[in-house]
Amino acid sequence: MKETVCIVCPRGCKLRIDESGGDLAVTGNACRRGRDFAVSELKDPRRTICTTVRTAFPEVPVLPVRLSAEIPKARIFDVMREINAVTVESRVGRGDIIIKDVLSLGADVIASSNLLKEIQ
């Protein structure tokens, strides 16, 4: 029996995962996403990253970015290193890809703001 807290939504359900029967039995979740989270948390915990990336524009020294999909939790700092090595030099907009398929993990680093489009 394992316990965790669902982080999918702000509700924060306390999940109990019973793997004794071979099949995973999840209780405490208020919705299906809670069950999916519990299963993933046990087998392959995944997280997203929200951070910034350096830009070449002095008015906007950094641009907020995030991942388009979750990556294995253990790879967070590897991906951070990739993001920190990049400088955005064009006026990318919200949703534009900054790094495609970062470290072949199946997630893109995308801009999460139109900031660079707004500056003069």
Binding site: T52, P61, V62, V88, I99
Partner: peptide, 12 residues
């Protein structure tokens, strides 16, 4: 100093 440290590569 800057969060992103020294010089890095560039994209786009």
């Amino acid at each position: 100093g800057q969060t992103k440290g020294g010089e890095g590569g560039s994209a786009r």
